[in-house]
Simulated scan of single mutants.
Amino acid sequence: MVNTFGTIQFKEKPSIASTGVVVGPMEKDSPFAASFDEILPLENEKDESYEQANTRFIEKACAVTVQKGREQIENIDMFIGGDLINQLSPTNFAARKLAIPFLGVFSACASSMESVILGSLLIESGNAKSILAGASSHHPAVERQFRYPLEYGAQKPGTAQWTVTGAGFALLQNHVKNAPIITHATIGRVVDGGQQNPLHMGAAMAPAARDTIERHLKNTNSKISDYDVIMTGDLGKIGLSILKEMFQDEDSGVILQDAGAQFYGDDSFFNAGASGAGCSATVFFSHIYKQLKNGVYKRVLLVATGALLSPLTFQQGETIPCIAHAIECRMEKRG
């Protein structure tokens, strides 16, 4: 394992043995919907809080992941996950039910890739054989915490994004036949571009995405055109446009993509696109994973972006520090 200013090269190349993605009703019309494992008809059931519903989505996604990986939950060494709610309550309560060793992580909407990086390090070190890693978000719960309760009916500007209701998890193991592998990871740095508008996250997170992508390319001696796709997590349409401008001298073309920009298609109801820790998790562990498994993609860079603000820091007039974590995946057939 070689560490070059935040970039890790995995000698053992951990495998993504299986994935599980469960989303809510608003996500059924997503262009990625055919790749989701389950679309639930309600964001929360009767007498169930939004936070309890978030926990249920996590539990379902983990169950799907383990089942598809032909494993038993008691054989999983560790559960690593995060969400956007106070003190990771939904993930904590899911861990209570799973009853296996647990690490809770928070990098806001970059939590999915932070979870995978930590899991890959444990697999690489030989201290674990099977790890569940991922993240989730729940639209009504996140809106209530970071912006306004849905019942308030607050109007949003065109720069705002729609938090995905969904959970995505991966089963990380070593030397799995015919499974995508993780060759490198780049740990993000906190980058603050001076943005203060919590309804314009794309502009806030784009500099962090650029920083991580640039460092990853430099440290792996790669260029953008070496990848089938470099997909960021939830910059949205505006943030992706800003990121492409930052790489205007590069051969970016259609290689630079964003899960948030594509998640709800061209429907203007969702303004600048999707966001939330579940945005990158559900797209990376469904559509991208299947494209790798089917041989459509040979080499991809997945970059989850997160805005590290809180309701308190916004009220105190702070700017929005951001981070982006990345993993590089390839498809490798192992005998």
Rank of each mutant, 00 (worst) to 15 (best):
V254N: 09
G317I: 13
F102C: 15
I187R: 07
D83Q: 13
L240S: 07
E214S: 15
I16E: 01
A259Y: 01
V254G: 08
Y148K: 13
N197F: 11
G273L: 03
L121V: 09
T163I: 09
V2Q: 05
A95N: 14
K11W: 06
E74Q: 15
F247M: 09
V142S: 09
E51A: 14
I76Y: 03
I320V: 12
E48K: 14
K68Q: 01
S107V: 02
P321H: 04
P140S: 11
I238F: 11
M246C: 05
T7V: 05
Y289V: 02
A203R: 12
G278Y: 12
S49R: 01
Q52K: 13
D267H: 10
N294W: 09
R330G: 11
D258A: 14
F314A: 08
L171K: 03
S89Q: 13
D234T: 10
M246S: 15
A95M: 12
E59K: 14
G20N: 07
I213R: 05
A99E: 00
A179C: 14
H287N: 13
A53E: 04
A154T: 02
Q315K: 13
F263C: 10
D266T: 14
W162P: 00
Q67P: 05
G134Q: 15
G317Y: 15
A261I: 04
A110M: 14
C62F: 03
R215Y: 02
A185C: 09
A304Q: 07
I39F: 02
L308Y: 09
T212M: 07
G236C: 10
K129I: 00
K298Y: 07
D29G: 11
D234Q: 11
L98Y: 02
E12N: 15
F169M: 05
K218F: 03
I323F: 06
K11G: 14
S268W: 03
L312H: 08
I8T: 05
S225E: 15
A135S: 15
A63L: 10
S107D: 05
S275D: 02
E143K: 07
S130D: 03
A160D: 01
T163C: 08
L302I: 04
D266M: 14
L235G: 11
I255M: 03
K293M: 12
V23T: 03
G153D: 05
A63F: 07
G335F: 13
I320R: 04
K28E: 07
K177F: 01
K60P: 01
I182Y: 09
I320N: 06
L122T: 04
G153Q: 06
G188A: 08
R144I: 00
S310E: 00
N294L: 08
A307D: 01
M201G: 15
G104P: 04
G253E: 12
T4F: 06
T55H: 02
E45R: 11
I131G: 03
I100K: 00
A324L: 11
A203N: 09
R215D: 00
